[in-house]
């Protein structure tokens, strides 16, 4: 019944990007999510925390986040996600939009 919380770390081959200030993006609508990215020293890794009512997609979350971290060359960031059943396409889109917001 309780919410499902997933915590894991991703590390890309050559981290080159970080966020300098906290950034928030998105709304936890149906099929959507919000993401909070904050600077976090983690030896170049990205700490991820996902809170979602849906279970059974742990591996999928890890793959989607790992691919995002790799493509964005992200390191030393904490990513927190509140999810309400977003598809991988929406997850990737929102993560990129959040990052674009951080760069703006």
């Amino acid at each position: 019944m309780a919410l499902n919380t997933l915590e894991f770390e991703c590390k890309c081959a050559a981290p080159a990007a970080a966020v300098t200030a906290p950034v928030h993006f998105g709304v936890v609508g149906s099929g959507d999510l919000e993401v909070l990215m904050t600077p976090a020293k983690a030896g170049g890794a990205v700490k991820v925390k996902v809170v979602t009512p849906v279970t059974g997609f742990d591996a999928l979350w890890q793959r989607v986040l790992a691919a995002f971290v790799e493509s964005a060359k992200l390191g030393d960031v904490a990513i927190e996600i509140n999810d309400n059943n977003a598809t991988p396409a929406v997850v990737t889109l929102r993560l990129r939009q959040a990052l674009a917001e951080a760069a703006a």
Partner: peptide, 11 residues
């Protein structure tokens, strides 16, 4: 409350 009920939360 939402957390207890297993419903999605927002910050």
């Amino acid at each position: 409350h939402l957390e207890t009920l297993g419903e999605a939360v927002e910050f």
